[in-house]
């Protein structure tokens, strides 16, 4: 990717981060930490990689994305709005009564959401099902999914991991948002899913390890995964929970806490300086 493309994607990440902070503050509820850690991944997918059309969000030939860590809905909504699936004004209805923007993604309500998620551990199975449907039909679309690292503690993830490798779903690429924290603390203290790459390799996946905030590395990993003929790809993306907001970075408490109004102003100011 040339520098202009990276610059343009980086600019989107600042808008998306600001909207994540705004919408969670407005809702006074939501999950900022794990939304901010995944901004570069979603920005790359929705603005560079995925074959999607906001005016035809149900196109059967489109690429699909499943947010298996559904509590990071704000990053998905902010990215979809930035990409033109719906108005950014609507983001401020997050988690409010009568809103399409449910606390966790509801595919029936929002254009661009490919799967309803929220109960951890379930998204990978659905993504594998979509990938299998593409194989059955000989359709070239690709399926992407984003999993949390804490989410790997769910047994269903490993059922799905075995399934995707067994059926050679090379049209499936997943990211693991390896920010190292879950609600109750660090993943290694709560119930360690480590070592992560070795587990996915042992389950028969193509495994890549990257810095999840480096758009160039995300690009290289996604393209490398597409070249594999007989395996699904797991990209272990090392990230920082709460990335780009110093008060939030690597603080487990910000997993599911909303900023106050004054914190919101402070964070937006910090994000606008970063954007310069």
């Amino acid at each position: 990717m040339n520098i202009e493309v990276i610059d343009s994607l980086t600019e989107k990440t600042w808008n998306i981060r600001k909207n994540i902070v705004r919408m969670i503050t407005q809702a006074q509820s939501g999950h900022p930490g794990g939304s901010l850690s995944a901004v570069e991944i979603l920005t790359y997918l929705y603005f560079k990689e995925m074959n999607i059309d906001p005016s035809n969000s149900k196109d059967p030939n489109r690429d699909r994305f499943v947010l298996s860590k559904g509590h990071a809905a704000p990053v998905l909504y902010a990215t979809l709005a930035e990409r033109g699936f719906f108005s950014t004004d609507e983001l401020l209805t997050l988690r409010k009564i009568n809103s399409r923007l449910q606390g966790h993604p509801d595919m029936k309500g929002i254009p661009g959401v490919d799967m309803s998620t929220g109960s951890l551990g379930q998204g990978l199975s659905a993504a594998a099902g979509m990938a299998l449907a593409g194989k059955i039909d000989g359709n070239a679309y690709r399926v992407f999914a984003l999993l949390g690292d804490g989410e790997l503690e769910e047994g269903q993830i490993w059922e799905a991991a075995m399934f995707a490798a067994h059926y050679k779903l090379n049209n499936l690429t997943i990211f693991i948002d390896f920010n190292g924290l879950q609600i109750d603390g660090s993943i290694s203290e709560v119930l360690s899913p480590l070592p992560i790459p070795e587990k996915w390799r042992a389950f028969g996946w193509n495994v890549l390890e990257i810095n999840g905030h480096d758009i160039q590395e995300i690009h290289c990993a996604v393209q490398s995964g597409k070249a594999f003929q007989d395996k699904p790809t797991a990209i272990i993306a090392t990230t920082i929970k709460g990335k780009c907001i110093r008060k939030m970075e690597n603080v487990a408490e910000w997993h599911g806490k909303a900023p106050t109004i004054s914190e919101c102003e402070e964070f937006l100011f910090e994000l606008s300086r970063g954007g310069l």
Partner: peptide, 28 residues
């Protein structure tokens, strides 16, 4: 046989994969 898939002893994944297949237009 090309439309039959054994998921092994894994009922949670059975239901989840079916959801994905249905989301992509199949009738599982």
């Amino acid at each position: 046989p090309e439309r039959f898939f054994n998921v092994g002893i894994a009922e949670q994944n059975l239901a989840g994969v079916a959801a994905g297949l249905a989301a992509a237009g199949k009738i599982p």
